Amino acid sequence: MSKQSWKGAALLNPVPPVLVSCGSIEKPNLITVGWAGTICTRPAMVSVSIRPERYSYGLIKDSGVFAVNLPTEGLVRAVDWCGVKSGRDVDKFAALGLHAEPGTVHPDCPILAESPLALECRVTQTIPLGSHELFLAVVEGVCVDESLLDSEGKLRLDRAGLIAYNHGEYRALGKRLGTFGYSVRKKRPAHPKKR
């Protein structure tokens, strides 16, 4: 396999595009963030990286809270649109026919009603990085659509129709290739068939 050496670039792909909601219930806003990630299990923490000139940056800085809404295939147009339009100029919820509802932990911070799962976050630290500022946040609550729970109450995100962003293209998630730990799991011995 022949490879070329390029100048350093942020080409870690695919990524989960998320709709970050912020502002207030009276004036909610959405921003598409492609640079979001899990950073800690205990306490549960995530990060989002946002340019300081973005409208949402100031809303999050001022309030110290935001919600990460996981988008589905049905929200892919909204994901794209909220990534190219500014909340300074347009009410994104109204323009897209979307609905903001109060979070359960942060009732003054909107969550996206159409998203099947929202992480309610409180900023603990910000790190200026250059073109972006990294918001580190504790996940203080999770709002989950009950349709994503199986009969035992287990979360089934595979039912949500979540999307990925891969170098300029939105993609549906594909078939399952394995499960956590499958590469080291011992196989069960085959039981002889009864006659």
Rank of each mutant, 00 (worst) to 15 (best):
E26Y: 06
P43M: 02
L136T: 04
D108H: 09
Q125F: 10
V46T: 05
A9C: 14
N29C: 07
W35S: 01
H106A: 02
L11N: 12
E152C: 11
H191K: 13
S147C: 09
S21C: 02
I60Y: 05
P189I: 01
M1V: 07
V123M: 02
C121I: 01
G58M: 13
R176S: 09
R42D: 15
H99V: 10
V123E: 00
K61S: 14
S131V: 12
V68L: 03
S115K: 06
K186L: 15
M1W: 02
D150E: 08
N166K: 15
K92R: 15
M1F: 13
Y165N: 10
L59Q: 11
R171Y: 10
C40D: 10
E26P: 00
T32M: 08
I127L: 03
D91E: 05
R176K: 11
A67S: 06
D80K: 08
A118P: 10
A113G: 06
S131Y: 12
V84M: 10
L129E: 13
M45V: 03
E133I: 13
L117R: 03
S147A: 07
S131G: 15
A160I: 09
Y170E: 04
K3V: 15
L129D: 08
K186T: 14
R88S: 15
G103H: 06
S115Q: 09
L136F: 04
A95W: 10
L96Y: 11
A95R: 05
I127K: 04
M45L: 09
M45N: 08
G83W: 08
A113Q: 07
I163G: 00
R77V: 05
V48N: 03
A118F: 01
G130M: 07
P71H: 06
G168Y: 13
V65C: 14
K186D: 14
Y55A: 12
N13D: 03
P71R: 08
K194D: 05
H132I: 00
P71Y: 11
E140V: 03
R195N: 07
I39A: 03
M45I: 12
S49K: 02
A172V: 07
Y170V: 08
A190M: 15
